[in-house]
């Protein structure tokens, strides 16, 4: 199948190095300490953060740092075929683990000993790149909750189809069976914290694809930073300072 036509356009009309439209909103769940909705094109994810709060299961308490927990789930209506899926399948368990470890790396957990932070992410619409969208939404929610972090974590995926590196794959491109590289970076420190990849790719091609994904992450980081700045300004205005 042709994923990039001769004019250099992808199936959804984007250029190979073009991202989908980003849209995000902060403070969407009123009871949560922090929450956000993050959209990448048709992918839509909602995240809520509770904490730092008392550890629910005392045996899990750590005396020098906070416990971070994460739960990822996909709404039944999020995909094309609507069906009831088992709650804890292997895929969502793995993504929960990945998101938890990624967020744990950027939260300053040693500042909040004997406490727990819960991150809940739910996919409302799935159109490829849910993993990236979840991480971006979780970052925003953590920032909204005012949890101290080393840096933002932003994530973006890239692929390689029809011998063209493509940024930010949608569902059709994702399920084409080609390589799919998901990268999560700490943009200020310029370090890679999350890297997941599958399918076969020669090493030098992999480097270009990873570079592309990192560029995508940086673009997401800029957007998130602007949004947070805007949000902070609004908060300032409301306080009447």
């Amino acid at each position: 199948m042709e994923y990039v036509n001769p004019e250099g356009l992808r199936l959804d009309g984007r250029r190979p190095l073009e991202m989908r439209q980003l849209r995000a909103e902060i403070g969407v769940v009123s009871r949560a300490d922090g929450s956000a909705v993050f959209e990448m094109g048709n992918t839509k994810v909602i995240a809520a953060v509770y904490g730092p709060r008392e550890v629910q299961n005392k045996s899990q308490q750590i005396n020098d740092q906070a416990v971070v927990r994460c739960e990822y789930s996909m709404a039944n209506f999020s995909t094309g075929d609507r069906m009831r899926k088992p709650k804890h399948d292997r895929r969502s368990t793995e993504i929960s683990l990945v998101i938890r470890q990624t967020m744990e790396a950027c939260i300053l957990t040693h500042l909040m000993p004997r406490s727990q932070i819960d991150i809940f992410v739910q996919v409302l619409q799935a159109d490829g790149g849910t993993r990236s969208a979840c991480i971006n939404a979780a970052t925003l929610a953590l920032a909204d909750a005012g949890i101290p972090m080393r840096d933002l974590v932003t994530s973006c995926a890239a692929g390689y189809l029809n011998s063209t590196p493509l940024l930010d794959l949608n569902y059709v491109e994702d399920s084409a069976g080609g390589p799919d590289v998901t990268v999560g970076i700490l943009p200020k420190l310029d370090k890679v914290t999350l890297l997941q990849m599958d399918a076969k790719l020669p090493m030098d091609t992999f480097e270009t694809v990873m570079q592309l994904a990192i560029e995508g992450c940086k673009a997401v980081a800029n957007y998130i930073r602007e949004l947070l700045l805007e949000n902070t300004k609004q908060l300032e205005f409301r306080r009447g300072v």
Binding site: L97, V98, I99, R100, Q101, T102, M103, E104, A105, V181, G184, I185, L186, L189, D190, K191, V192, T193, L194, L195, Q196, M197, D198, A199, K200, L201, P202, M203, F206, M210, Q211, I214
Partner: peptide, 17 residues
């Protein structure tokens, strides 16, 4: 052959590219 088949770095400390 030197082809990358899968990579997993699930969070944790950041490293340079």
């Amino acid at each position: 052959n030197g082809d990358v088949c899968a990579i997993q770095k699930a969070g944790g400390d950041g490293v340079m590219q």
